[in-house]
Design a protein around this nucleic acid. Structure first.
Lengths: 362, 362
DNA sequence: CTTCGCGCTGGAAACGTTTCCATCGAGGGC
DNA sequence: GCCCTCGATGGAAACGTTTCCAGCGCGAAG
């Protein structure tokens, strides 16, 4: 049917026997047009299978109707869900998403920002390794490209769609205290390139202090360790005194339980585990995960709404952090009275805390 | 520093004291230029903080260096990972991804395709509800926009990056048979808008037939049922005869185990469960999930490579389906001798198979 | 000394759209 | 009957880039 080469508004105008200006006015319902030419243009367009070239439009109006979204990785469902939310919200406003991911590499963050701005995105929604230190983000802003953060705490004059990680972590501390825990740990990826993880740790530490608990032990593991139950078990064995561990995300929390089982520890009897994020799967486990539930999709949507407001020329206020819920689950309970004995009996004899470089006290 | 309004190649040329043609040649390293003007143009560009407008470029070259990616939803990690892979592979070739999701709605599929082609994407990578019935996809192809499928079986002259769902399902049948199961079920979402799920069911049915097993019972549930352990348990209770259930994806498999536990059934003693996809989390469960492991990221990468070849003007062959692995896990085992008694004792009395509309025999 | 060729250069067209502006015609008020 | 107004229309410019083409100067070959 349609010729394989592009149909332009010129072709439509020619077929309708009018000028391109009229055709444009009809097709955009802008400006006054007679019923007669309206009819002719519409028929011509339909017959030709015409559709606008977004490129031509963008060039002329210098609005691309595209927004750039930068996240560390879509392989992390938390970000993927957020992007899904962003996308839904933007779609309703006629915008598309150009998506880039940095794989947690600051250099890639900068590069991606460069590419996105070259593509003339109308706005930016970003989650970066270090937004405040990013010259690329600064450059985008000096070019008057509106930008909002996602997941980060608001900073440097940028609005952000986020949850209050520190407050959520304090709530976890409260719940641990209420269950009777005194010696807690915080499990995170080493070299964590996530300021969210850091915020959770400081919040947790602060909460513990307020409640008169010992400062939590920071247990850092590499990605490789986290993926290997054995390795994780060895690291865990180096901390026999801990009765509860707050993992910086649900995946770590689940992996941690596996490691605990490897050591013969029963969760939550011998070790309580709390996660973060509230991924769906956590509900469906035999022993539902105790975690802090957040709503990444809502975060994505809020970021999109903020950006849309800015694109409309408004100057929205920084909204309150999105709510989080402590989801009780079944992996946090009072520590068993006799747990120390159990623990000593099953602890791997090869564990030497002093030699373990991932052990840090704060 | 930079003026807030756009810097064009014209500005660079003016500052370098040369014509735009020369500036373009220098900045693109195309055509002959003197060392002198090269130096001047480069300095001017640097001083001005110039960067090309991808829009201007796209308009002139009619190549946008953007490819459209359409998936049902990024909230499904399988698709999110695939997109991540696609993106990585395309990025290395200088392409960006315009991503759209349909939320499993065929109308949205068509709409998204329209928007993507209007944005002048150079190619398309799609996973749709019904690719063969999509006029929008046909329209894109008549406009000479190269397209490749992802997850789907190759069809209608389109190449696809996929796994052989039917073969994988036959392998599951084989494993079930080897474990001694005779009465099996297939758990899927009702009105499943996934031809992959259908392919798995037919493959499983075929495998069962070849191995002399009874045809599997198709157990369909709504999304709501799948999300509610109680509802899923009621449905499961309607099938007391089944000793093994193949779930159409890992999430269903995990939810199913929860439901089984609700009925007092032990997995795998009383009921074996096999999943599909091989999501990471399945490995870390207390009872690692028996499943078919696929590699969505590899699929995304392969789709990208196919498309890139087409964009280079080559006509690649349909590659072999990507490999899958049967991951043994711990949720498939021989059915217990005495399970029928257990089952009868714990079955919910409210279950009336005849009244259950989701029970179908194939 | 002329001519040829070649390296380098800049003007201009083209890509597809929107919008400003000028033009044209018709209808209404005087 | 004339002029003004207003609605409808089309030409053309502009957006930023690449590339064709013509022109320039200079060196080498005859």
């Amino acid at each position: 049917m349609a010729r394989s080469s592009k149909i332009t508004i010129r072709d439509v105008a020619a077929r309708a026997g009018c000028g391109v200006a009229t055709a444009s006015r009809v097709l955009n319902r802008s400006g006054a047009t007679s019923a007669d030419s309206r009819e002719r243009v519409e028929r011509a367009a339909a017959e030709l299978g015409f559709s606008f070239s977004a490129i031509g439009r963008a060039l002329q109006s210098s609005r691309s109707m595209t927004v750039g979204v930068l996240v560390p990785s879509l392989a992390n469902p938390v970000f993927a869900e957020a992007v899904q939310g962003t996308q839904e919200e933007l779609r309703d406003a006629g915008y598309q998403c150009l998506i880039a991911s940095s794989t947690y590499d600051p250099a890639r963050d900068a590069e991606a920002l460069g590419v996105l701005t070259a593509k003339q995105v109308d706005g930016l929604i970003v989650t970066m390794v270090a937004p405040e230190e990013s010259p690329a983000l600064g450059a985008a802003r000096t070019r008057d490209i509106p930008a909002v953060l996602m997941f980060h705490d608001p900073r440097a004059g940028l609005l952000s769609a986020h949850v209050d990680n520190a407050a959520a972590a304090r709530e976890v501390a409260r719940q641990c205290a209420a269950a009777g825990h005194r010696a807690t740990g915080f499990l995170a990826l080493r070299f964590s390139t996530s300021d969210r993880s850091r915020a959770r740790f400081t919040g947790f530490t602060q909460g513990c202090a307020e409640l008169g608990m010992a400062a939590p032990v920071l247990v850092e593991v590499s990605e490789a360790e986290a993926a290997s139950p054995d390795a994780l078990a060895r690291t865990l064995a180096a901390h026999p005194d801990l009765t509860a561990i707050f993992a910086s995300n649900d995946f770590l929390a689940i992996a941690l339980q596996r490691a605990a089982r490897e050591l013969g520890l029963r969760v939550p009897r011998d070790l309580s585990v709390v996660g973060f994020d509230g991924i769906e799967i956590g509900r469906h486990l035999d022993r539902p995960l105790t975690t802090v539930e957040t709503d990444p999709e809502a975060m994505g949507r809020q970021a999109a709404r903020l950006l849309l407001a800015m694109l409309r020329g408004e100057t929205p206020e920084q909204p309150a952090p999105l709510p989080f819920t402590f989801r009780p689950g079944a992996t946090l309970a009072a520590p068993a009275e006799d747990r120390d004995d159990d623990r000593a009996a099953t602890r791997s004899p090869s564990a030497h805390p002093d030699q373990n470089p991932s052990l840090k006290r704060t």
